[in-house]
Amino acid sequence: MFIDSHLGRRSLLPLAAALAAGPHAAAAQETAEEKPRLWDSEAELGISTASGNSESTTYRGAVSGERDEGRTHLLLQTSGRYSEEEGESTTQRLQGDAQLDYDLNRSVYAFAALSALNDRFAGYELQLVETLGLGRHFFQDHETLEWRLDAGPALRQDWLVDDTYEDSVNARVRTKFAWSFAESSTFREQITWTQSVEDAEEYLLSSETSLSLRVNESLAFKTSVAVEHDSQPPEGAERTDVFTSTSLLYQF
């Protein structure tokens, strides 16, 4: 039987091209699938109500995002809380934080941080705190423990609800601890202390203690206690606020 050689070559060319392109196409697809996400983000929403002798409702929301690129690490987060009792507002708090870290070596990093707060019930129309400093990571070789400590000089500006303005030089210390004591459970503690260098009795202290239980890869339940203490609050404001909440976390 006679077969045209030109026809045979023409029929083999597409097959050869497909075989040659196959490994490259598979490699390209695998690379696209393994490409890391630019941001690790999390959203939180909590609602609590009370009825009976008093009617009250509290809403809490937060969004955060982290991005790692080489030696640089960026954290952005914002949170808000609104409460009303018997139809009247009792809490209106909005806070935003940003921190940029640069690794000097495996354990030590330099950072720049900015914190902004609006809390009219605490007497602040706006409060800004800017910090530069150094930090250190601990337990880097431990799979279930994470601890970091950073500190540095800070500038603080307060715009008060009575239309007055104050500023001061401070020292800021922050510690963050996380313990994944079970496959789906994590305990976290964060404490931030901002101390005036001009007045030893003037400082801000905030802490949040939380426990989260993961339901699946994206969802988790979280219960937390947050304490905000101002040693010299504006006139008419309480020194200490304590907030408890249970909320739903969604990672994306």
Rank of each mutant, 00 (worst) to 15 (best):
T90Y: 05
Q92D: 13
R93I: 01
Q95Y: 10
D97N: 15
D97M: 09
A98H: 03
Q99T: 14
L100D: 12
L100G: 12
D101W: 03
Y102P: 04
Y102T: 04
D103R: 15
L104I: 12
L104S: 09
R106Y: 10
S107P: 01
A110W: 10
A110H: 07
F111W: 07
F111A: 04
F111G: 05
A113Q: 15
A113M: 06
A113K: 15
L114V: 11
A116I: 05
A116H: 08
L117T: 08
N118T: 05
N118H: 15
D119P: 01
D119R: 03
A122G: 08
A122Y: 01
A122L: 04
A122N: 08
E125P: 01
E125K: 13
L126V: 01
L126R: 14
Q127N: 11
L128V: 05
V129L: 08
V129G: 08
E130A: 11
E130R: 07
E130D: 12
T131N: 13
L132N: 04
L132Q: 04
G133F: 01
G133W: 04
G135H: 07
R136K: 10
R136H: 06
R136W: 00
H137I: 00
H137F: 09
H137P: 00
Q140A: 07
Q140F: 00
D141G: 09
D141H: 07
H142G: 04
H142Y: 09
E143W: 01
E143T: 02
T144I: 03
L145S: 07
L145P: 01
L145T: 03
L145M: 11
E146A: 15
E146T: 09
E146N: 13
W147I: 01
W147R: 07
R148M: 05
R148S: 12
D150T: 01
D150M: 12
